[in-house]
Simulated scan of single mutants.
Amino acid sequence: MILRPLREHDLDRVMELERELFGPGAWSRAAYREELAQAGRYYVAAESDGVVVGYAGIALGEDSEVMTVGVATAHRGRGTGAALLADLVERARAARARHVFLEVRAGNLGAQRLYERAGFESIGTRPRYYGDEDAVVMRLTLRSGRGDLTAAP
């Protein structure tokens, strides 16, 4: 598996994965085009044997926010999600982010465990964030107000 920047020509495959992974909550091609064009956004693809098997994105800033993480069902449990998340966190570090935030479905315990292993902690919930389900809000602290790193690399 290799990680590389997500490109517009990957969007056919991303749309397939979005439907598989997120159903009615899937992002549109237009939403991805807009995200890829925005300054301060970083999207990465995980590729195996020439096929995109996962992707992730982050909005970079002092308080960065994970926008999405998706891994093909057949490729789960192989470290793909952890590799994508680690890449996003490294981008946030390079951008001198203080925190990285994300929301995850309350019922998605596998993703919550992945985020916890990466050092994220649950800090609250957003009721009915996904329409039919609450979101758990998680945060990873990268540096304190003095600029020292406080999370393990």
Rank of each mutant, 00 (worst) to 15 (best):
Q112A: 05
A39R: 12
A37V: 05
N108A: 04
A30D: 15
A74G: 10
M67K: 11
L3E: 15
P24K: 15
A95I: 07
Y32N: 08
V66H: 03
I58P: 07
V53C: 05
D12L: 05
H9L: 12
R96E: 13
Y55A: 03
A135P: 04
G131F: 07
G23N: 13
Y42M: 03
A94C: 04
A59S: 10
R91M: 02
A83P: 00
V14G: 03
G40F: 00
A135T: 14
L36A: 07
A46I: 11
R146G: 08
A118K: 14
R105E: 12
Y55S: 06
R126F: 01
A97H: 09
Y130P: 11
G50Q: 09
T80S: 06
T73K: 10
A37L: 03
D49S: 08
A31N: 11
V104C: 03
A118P: 00
G23V: 02
R105K: 10
R143W: 00
V14W: 05
G40H: 08
S28H: 03
G70L: 03
T141Y: 08
S48A: 13
R91W: 02
V89S: 09
L6T: 14
P127G: 10
A111F: 01
V71D: 11
L109E: 15
V104Y: 02
G147D: 15
I58A: 11
G81T: 13
E62M: 01
H99K: 13
S48H: 09
A83V: 06
A56Y: 00
E47I: 02
